[in-house]
């Protein structure tokens, strides 16, 4: 039972942090980041590579966050003066390119062979047996911290400007707000949060390889955010739990149905696609959202 709870805390928790970063960008600022997973990958790889080279973990994690934030800001600066589609195109491209680089720069990343045997926080103190329990606690603490940070920001004047840009950028500008700068900030901060979730994922998995960071991961985050009602941090966390539930039930059911592994994972992905389609068509405000706060729509 405890193992079960620990595994929920770890997977759902890490994905909740990941999705909270996207919720800041999409839910509060209306930015179409279709390459969120790239920033998670940057967090994981930078943290692991630096720590394997003797850099202590905390600075290694921070370095990943800063680098991901800078990458997000750069992509934003290249596209945010243009129509919103361009950010979507460029971020999705970036996430694919990054994965290609991780796969092919073998001298650094060992390609699809992956990286393992890297340090994890407090691994000597805690010991192997209870490590996941400890890490689950750490993940939940980080989740709480990120949640509180984002809630504080969302309720602050800064968050108010962000929401105004999401609703109508021209209004924000007409009231003296530098909309471009706010969008870049949201993109950078959300990407840094994704990087943080990437570092935690690396600690949990003990083994990373580029295929952990497929484009589909980005859209898991999208489903979590939209399901919970875009612009709602608690909803995003709920969305992460629901999606986690979906995966564990479908895996559980696979045991009883005699599908081949490819067919069943394919079927699960078709379902994911249909969920995304269905949500956009029938319930864009999410499960918790109110029509008035509908983030997608008119």
């Amino acid at each position: 039972m405890l193992d079960y709870l620990v595994s929920i805390a770890l997977t759902a928790g890490i994905y909740a942090i990941f999705a909270l970063g996207l919720n800041l960008q999409w839910g509060y600022a209306g930015l179409l980041n279709f390459g969120h997973v790239a920033f998670m990958a940057m967090g994981a790889y930078v943290t692991v590579l630096l720590s394997m080279n003797g850099i202590p973990l905390l600075p290694a994690v921070l370095a990943g966050m800063i680098l991901a934030g800078a990458a997000g800001a750069f992509l934003g600066m290249a596209t945010l003066r243009l129509r919103e589609d361009y950010l979507a195109i460029v971020t999705i491209g970036f996430s694919e390119i990054l994965r290609f680089i991780l796969l092919n720069w073998s001298s650094l990343t060992r390609g699809s062979f992956g990286l393992f045997g890297y340090p994890r926080p407090f691994q000597d103190l805690v010991g192997i047996r209870d490590y996941n329990l400890f890490l689950a606690g750490l993940v939940l603490a980080v989740l709480l911290l990120v949640y509180m940070l984002l809630e504080t920001l969302a309720r602050s004047p800064w968050g108010r400007v962000l929401k105004s840009i999401r609703d109508d950028e021209a209004v924000a500008i007409s009231l003296g707000k530098n909309a471009f700068s706010y969008k870049v900030q949201a993109l950078a901060l959300g990407s840094a949060i994704a990087a943080l979730s990437g570092s935690l994922l690396a600690f949990y998995l003990q083994y990373i390889n580029p295929n952990n960071f497929q484009p589909i991961e980005t859209f898991y985050a999208w489903i979590m955010v939209i399901m919970g009602g875009s612009g709602n941090n608690r909803g995003t966390i709920l969305g992460a739990l629901i999606l986690w539930g979906f995966f564990s039930t479908t895996r559980f059911m696979e045991g009883y149905l005699s599908f081949s592994p490819t067919a069943s994972s394919g079927a699960r992905m078709v379902l994911i696609g249909l969920i995304l389609i269905g949500m956009m068509m029938f319930r864009p405000q999410g499960l918790l959202g109110r029509k008035e706060e509908l983030s997608i729509g008119k």
């Binding site: 004047p157 108010r160 400007v161 929401k163 105004s164 999401r166 609703d167 109508d168 021209a170 209004v171 924000a172 009231l175 707000k177 612009g231 008035e292 706060e293 509908l294 983030s295 008119k298």
Partner: peptide
């Protein structure tokens, strides 16, 4: 161009 998904007060404070 009201900010439809923000309250009247939020609109003002912005």
């Amino acid at each position: 161009r009201s900010l439809m998904r923000m309250t009247v007060l939020e609109n003002m404070m912005l």
